[in-house]
Write a protein that binds this DNA or RNA. Structure first.
Lengths: 218, 218
DNA sequence: CGAACTTTTGAACCCCTTCAACATCAGTGG
DNA sequence: CCACTGATGTTGAAGGGGTTCAAAAGTTCG
């Protein structure tokens, strides 16, 4: 479990991670189990220890939008208002540390932690704005390429990794990118045919030409 | 110019609006003039006094995504990190109050203003997340309906107004909703044919059946 | 193995885009 | 006042990218 403070991930600021580890209650969630619900009071903050988490929002007819994916070291819930606009579910069996926001607030008087909370919110906003551009103005191919590159950067922030493993299903990817599972699957097949990636198993990829992939995201 | 503190708009928290009005430099921008640029240092905070502003992000080939629209009383720039991820332009001739963030920070020691900054960031995040759902999972018709309803709520927060005037062009709407101008135009024509709205002139609409429109957004 | 689920592949369709023409409006100057 | 011009918006027709529906192939786990 890495707790590095990285602007490109949801990583918890060290000050908050420390408090979480001191005060946090360890909870386990099975695959697809709900961690918190849409419209629920947001009185808890979660730090992912192992596994992976997605946040989702539903339209009345069941169409789903995935807001973001969270991995070990990432923080969920600091940035939310009094009520959760998205629900959160475990993508696979996961463990998270849970702390009451009020408990965190009790340690936030010194201003430094206050600032850390704002930073976390601000970075969440930046990622969401990036996501906005992907959903609004990119093609299916560019969407998938953008997603793969963001996964790669997460694993090796200093230089895009060539090996990428994905805990989420094709449905999760599709709902994150505003596509269907069929389109995601076809696009991955196409990227492989073009020699940009290699599919080891369906949740384990090799980025053969990361430079070319990155150009698809510009 | 209203400075009401409304969670559904970009309205400035009273504490910040007050400081802005005391310290702000009044600047005028012509239609389509740039207020700040993408990748520029974000050392200024802007309060819209009159007119309207859009934030935009460009892909390398010129495709454009509009991030948000801002109206009198709305604040721009508090939520940004050290560098602007979006540029901002005046939609029509506009006046804004400008203050250095450092100047604002000097008044932020009391914690209450600190909290106001976080709240502003948090509400910006919530709106962006709402926008995410619109871009990712809604049809053209639902997108336009959602946009019209958000405009209506802005004008009369207590009960959706029936009269809506839009300072932005069809191109701005299209780039906000991830559509083309033709599709936006056709959709508006269709909504009128269905009796949901009435087009007075192309930037002045009447919402005839706001309830039905709202159902399109669910 | 066998059942349930996930992923891939195929074929037809459709919503939105693209390309093109026309309409409308504001501003300018004869 | 009207002709001219450029910007903006609307409408039409054709095309394409992504969806939908269907079925096969692969994966997981009892």
């Amino acid at each position: 479990m890495t707790l590095a403070y990285d602007t490109e991930t949801h990583a918890a600021p060290p000050a908050i991670a420390e408090v979480m580890q001191r005060l946090g209650l360890k909870m386990s969630f099975a695959k697809d189990e709900e961690i918190f619900a849409q419209d629920e009071d947001a009185d808890l903050v979660h730090l992912v220890v192992s596994g992976a988490v997605r946040t989702t929002r539903l339209l009345s007819d069941g169409r789903r939008q995935v807001g973001a994916f969270y991995y070990p070291g990432d923080l969920i819930g600091l940035e939310t208002g009094p009520i959760h606009r998205f629900s959160a579910e475990a993508i696979c069996d996961s463990v998270v540390l849970v702390v009451r926001r009020t408990a965190l607030k009790a340690f936030a008087g010194d201003g430094q932690l206050d600032r850390a909370i704002w930073e976390a919110t601000r970075r969440e906003l930046e990622r969401t704005q990036e996501h906005l551009l992907v959903l609004g103005r990119k093609t299916a191919c560019e969407k998938v390429a953008s997603f793969l590159m963001s996964l790669a950067q997460r694993e090796r922030p200093e230089a895009a990794a060539t090996r990428v493993s994905m805990p989420m299903s094709r449905q999760d990817m599709a709902d994150y990118l505003g596509l269907t599972i069929e389109t995601v699957s076809r696009t991955i097949t196409q990227l492989q045919a073009d020699g940009l990636i290699e599919v080891r198993c369906c949740r384990q990829l090799l980025l053969k030409r990361p430079r070319a992939l990155a150009e698809l995201c510009e």
